[in-house]
Simulated scan of single mutants.
Amino acid sequence: MSTVRTVLVIGGGSAGNAMTILLRRAGMAVDLVEAKEDWNATAGSGITVQGNALRVLHELGVWEQVRASGFPFDSFGVTAQDGTVLQVVEDIRTGGDELPATVGMQRPQLQQILIDAVRASGARVRLGTRAEILSQDAHGVDVRLSDGTTGRYDLVIAADGMGSATRAGIGIEDRPVPTGMAIWRVAAPRPQGLDRTDLTYGGSAFIAGYCPTSEHTLYAYVVEANRDRSSLHPSSYADEMRRLLKGYGGHWPEILPHIDDPSKVNYTWFDRMLVEGSWHRGRVVLIGDAAHCCPPTLAQGAAISLEDALVLAELLTAADVWDGALLQAFHDRRIHRVRAVVEASVQIGQWQLDGAGGADVPGLMSRTLGTLRDLP
């Protein structure tokens, strides 16, 4: 085609940023709108980036920055509450043998790497801006932005998260549902000798764990049954997290004194959602958390969202015609892989809620992650 195709990407998280980079590389005109003025550049404590996510980041051209900023490792430990190591498991290299199994990162670092790549791509970025679908036809989508301007695009890609206003605006009624669990997270200095994720199942919480995110930092987390948020005040977050972790050994006594600033502790419920049926309406298509979300029990949420961007970009770049059949092909290629991750992630959490001591958590994790070595 001689005419440059135009795309609006709504949402500047991992999936939206990756989508923008890939489509700009293919020569398309891309506008990225993000509701937050700061582009989420400081949000979050840490992230566990597994191999299949690293594979996408490598394709984006940012792998070297990710490796330099994060902490690669290839195993995880299971410990008793007193810190005794019960088992060390070699992690599955879901991105292939040439990449580490996992890289722990400070989430703002990963976001900044992607922001820089979006800026370098030449995409037009509008921060503090929301988008509303006005109308569409067989050839394009008319959009109004919150700054009062309007535009018409060949395609709109909604990567605006699990609370996606675009999803609701195009008539898809699926919504995230709480799973019954919640997580406390915080960034802290990394103790000497802490060089992988260690997990403790049981004690005063369902899971207590930590992940190195650089030579000097980690993020720590503890998972419990969710609480009525009205019973918690943000000023108590550090005290609550320390209280839950007080009985744990190993590296925890070195970490706990650094959980002292409630403004740096994040408390979040676990949610699940998988949009059933098509992920598009006309020329508006959902990707990432706007189409699916799950608890981080497999640490795959960001990975499968990044995969969405890679697959959709591949299909769009190769196609002469953009139509409903193409967008349905995207859904059909992704749904079985995504469903397996969502259902396994939810099942692991449900076993913990039910106190199912004999549940085959390692087996389910191994089976699910093993399938992700295949290309998406």
Rank of each mutant, 00 (worst) to 15 (best):
residue 44 G to F: 03
residue 283 R to N: 07
residue 301 G to L: 09
residue 251 H to V: 12
residue 20 T to Q: 04
residue 314 E to H: 10
residue 307 E to Q: 07
residue 312 L to I: 04
residue 320 D to N: 14
residue 178 P to R: 12
residue 252 W to G: 00
residue 244 L to R: 13
residue 195 D to C: 07
residue 209 G to H: 06
residue 351 W to N: 02
residue 223 V to E: 07
residue 306 L to S: 00
residue 89 V to G: 00
residue 339 R to H: 10
residue 168 A to H: 13
residue 229 R to A: 14
residue 345 S to M: 04
residue 263 S to D: 12
residue 253 P to R: 11
residue 328 Q to F: 06
residue 272 R to F: 01
residue 80 A to Q: 09
residue 295 P to H: 09
residue 301 G to D: 08
residue 112 Q to K: 15
residue 32 L to G: 05
residue 252 W to T: 03
residue 174 D to R: 01
residue 16 G to W: 00
residue 14 S to G: 08
residue 152 R to W: 05
residue 263 S to E: 10
residue 366 S to R: 12
residue 63 W to I: 15
residue 65 Q to R: 15
residue 356 A to D: 14
residue 114 L to D: 02
residue 168 A to K: 14
residue 298 L to N: 03
residue 184 W to N: 04
residue 167 R to K: 05
residue 124 R to H: 14
residue 288 G to E: 01
residue 225 A to H: 13
residue 62 V to Q: 05
residue 332 D to H: 10
residue 32 L to S: 06
residue 269 W to E: 11
residue 343 E to V: 13
residue 292 H to K: 11
residue 251 H to Q: 06
residue 173 E to L: 12
residue 58 H to N: 15
residue 26 A to C: 10
residue 346 V to W: 02
residue 190 R to V: 10
residue 133 I to C: 04
residue 113 I to L: 14
residue 221 Y to R: 01
residue 330 F to T: 01
residue 9 V to S: 08
residue 107 R to I: 11
residue 120 A to M: 10
residue 197 T to W: 01
residue 339 R to D: 11
residue 253 P to G: 04
residue 298 L to A: 07
residue 347 Q to R: 13
residue 243 R to S: 14
residue 91 D to H: 09
residue 35 A to M: 14
residue 319 A to K: 05
residue 103 V to N: 06
residue 229 R to P: 02
